[in-house]
Computed example of a mutant assay.
Amino acid sequence: MFEKLEIFRMAHALATHAGARQSVVAQNMANADTPDYRARDVTPFKEIIESGDSGFVPRVTRPGHLHAAALPFDLGIAEVRDVETDPNGNSVSLETEMMKAVDVKREHDRALAVYKSSLGVLRSALGRR
C-alpha cells in the first residue's frame, strides 16, 4: 500500500537533480580558467517534470556510474548559451556560478523539507509520532 508513494519519489528526484546540478556547477567553477571551456547547466527541474517524458522511469546515463544505478530522469546537461566569453574562449562567470550554487542549496533543502513533511504526515496517519 505504501510502497510507491509519489511524493517520496518526487522528493528523491528533486534531491537527485540538485546533486547533479551541484556537480555541474562545481565543474564549471573548477574550469573557470580553462581556455575554450563552455559553462554548462542542468535543465531546470520544473521543465523536466512539466515535459511529461520524465515519468520517473529509470534511465542509466553511463555504465558503472554509481554502481550502474539509474537516474530517475534525463538531466539534460547542456552548454549555457548567450553568455559573454573571455578572450581565451571561456564562458564561466564565477559570480553566476556562485549564485547557482546558492540556488542548488535551496533546491536540496526544499527536497529535504518535502521528504520530512511527507514522512511526518505518514507517521501521523499511522498513529505514530
Rank of each mutant, 00 (worst) to 15 (best):
M1N: 11
E3G: 14
K4W: 00
I7R: 04
M10A: 14
A13R: 08
A13F: 11
H17P: 06
H17Q: 09
A18V: 04
R21T: 10
S23A: 13
S23K: 14
V24R: 02
V25H: 00
Q27M: 12
Q27F: 05
N28K: 02
N28H: 01
M29G: 11
N31S: 06
A32V: 06
D36N: 13
D36F: 15
Y37Q: 01
A39F: 04
D41K: 05
D41S: 12
V42L: 07
T43N: 07
P44V: 11
K46E: 15
E47H: 02
E47I: 09
E47Q: 14
I48D: 06
I49G: 04
I49L: 14
I49Q: 02
E50C: 01
E50Q: 11
S51T: 09
G52L: 04
D53V: 12
D53P: 03
F56C: 08
V57D: 04
V57S: 09
V57C: 02
P58C: 06
P58W: 03
P58H: 01
V60W: 03
T61A: 14
H65C: 08
L66Y: 11
L66D: 00
H67A: 13
H67S: 14
A68D: 13
A68G: 03
A68M: 14
A70D: 03
L71F: 13
P72N: 05
F73I: 01
G76C: 01
I77W: 01
E79Y: 11
V80D: 06
V80M: 10
R81I: 15
E84Y: 07
T85V: 09
N88Q: 10
N88G: 07
G89H: 02
N90F: 03
S91T: 13
V92K: 03
T96A: 11
T96Q: 14
M98Q: 13
K100V: 14
V102R: 10
D103Y: 03
V104M: 02
K105E: 15
K105N: 12
E107S: 15
D109V: 13
R110I: 10
A113K: 01
Y115Q: 03
K116T: 13
S117H: 08
S117Q: 01
S118H: 01
S118E: 00
L122N: 10
L122W: 05
S124L: 08
A125T: 08
A125N: 09
G127L: 09
G127I: 11
R128I: 13
R128E: 12
R128G: 07
